[in-house]
Simulated scan of single mutants.
Amino acid sequence: MYTHVLIPTDGSEFAQAGVIHGLSLAKEHGARVTAITATEAPGGQFAYSSDLWTLGETEMAAYERDQHREAEAILAPVKASAEQLGLEIETVHVPDRRAAPAILDTARKCGCDIIVMASHGRTGMSRVMLGSHTAEVLTQADIPVIVFR
């Protein structure tokens, strides 16, 4: 039924539930896997470079190297687990993007037919203040999304 599973992860314990179930689903269906992590640009969602201090070239290069290393550290165990299961896997790091748009764009570009991800289970004010990447993916995806908590 499924031929290409997208598994987003931020490397957290919460995200691991989605990884495990995504790999299991891929194994069950003989599907390929794309694992993705996204890293945001420095400054946060409410900072504008014209209003605040910005990173210089050296600091920005160091930040980008650190984000790349972090992404590799997040994706390497997913890749190893997939390979142990005999699954074909590609890993993708999307830099300087919020997670939800990166997930949705990657699903489209890679031709994935399902997204399997975890939810941190935030509710109430923490969800409003922090936003919910999972909710954004759920409401905007044009393919099925399985969410694990």
Rank of each mutant, 00 (worst) to 15 (best):
S81P: 08
E83C: 03
A118E: 00
R127W: 11
G131E: 04
H68K: 14
A26W: 09
E88N: 15
G22C: 03
H68E: 13
A15V: 02
E90H: 04
E57K: 10
Q45T: 15
P8C: 00
H29W: 06
T91W: 01
Q45R: 15
G86W: 08
G18E: 05
Q67I: 02
R97D: 13
H120L: 09
A141Q: 01
V94T: 15
Y2C: 12
R32D: 15
E64F: 02
A102Y: 06
G86I: 10
E136P: 01
A26K: 04
K79W: 08
L52P: 03
A99Q: 00
E90W: 01
S126E: 04
A99I: 09
Y63K: 15
M125W: 04
Q45A: 15
A100S: 10
I143C: 12
V33T: 05
T139H: 15
T106P: 04
G43F: 00
E59T: 15
R108D: 05
L130A: 09
D66A: 11
P101Q: 14
V5L: 04
H21K: 11
C112Q: 10
M125G: 12
H68L: 10
H93G: 12
E90Y: 08
H120N: 13
D10R: 08
R149G: 08
G131D: 09
L130E: 06
A82S: 14
R108I: 10
V5S: 13
L138P: 06
W53R: 15
A99D: 05
V94A: 07
